Lab assay of single mutants.
Amino acid sequence: RHRTTFSPVQLEQLESAFGRNQYPDIWARESLARDTGLSEARIQVWFQNRRAKQRK
């Protein structure tokens, strides 16, 4: 699998969602996937990585 590159618009949507809830449930992730055009799995990994980045 190649590395996913996120567009500025996608990142804005993801960061906005992260600001509201750092642990989105499956319904929120699937909604974000539809809105961004990404797969739910990529959304899930993005949130995992974003939480790890915040802990540093």
Results as ranks from 00 to 15, higher is better:
E40H: 07
A52H: 15
S7Q: 03
R29Q: 11
P24S: 10
K53I: 12
F6L: 11
S39G: 07
T4H: 13
Q48D: 14
T4K: 08
R55V: 10
L14K: 00
R1E: 13
N21L: 02
W46N: 01
D35K: 15
G37C: 05
Q54N: 13
L32C: 01
L32E: 03
I26V: 13
R3T: 15
Q44M: 12
Q48L: 08
Q22E: 14
V9F: 12
S39W: 01
S16L: 13
I43L: 03
S7P: 01
S31M: 06
K53V: 11
R34Y: 04
L11F: 03
N49A: 13
R55P: 14
K56L: 08
W27R: 15
R55I: 15
Q44P: 03
S16K: 15
R51K: 00
N49D: 10
Q48I: 11
L11I: 11
E12Q: 15
H2C: 07
S7D: 05
F18R: 00
E40F: 07
R34H: 04
R3N: 07
L38Q: 05
T5A: 05
N21H: 03
R50E: 14
R34E: 04
E12H: 03
R42P: 04
Y23V: 07
N21C: 07
D25C: 02
R29D: 02
Q44K: 13
R55G: 15
R20T: 09
R3Q: 09
Q54K: 06
T36I: 08
E40M: 10
P8T: 11
R34G: 05
R20P: 05
V9Y: 07
R20N: 10
L11T: 09
L32A: 01
L11K: 10
A52V: 09
Q48C: 13
L14A: 00
R3F: 15
R34W: 06
L14P: 04
A28F: 05
Y23M: 06
G19N: 05
S39K: 07
G19R: 14
T36W: 04
L11V: 10
T36G: 00
K53W: 06
T36S: 03
Q13L: 09
Q22A: 10
E40A: 12
N49F: 05
R20L: 09
V9I: 08
I43F: 02
K56T: 07
S31V: 12
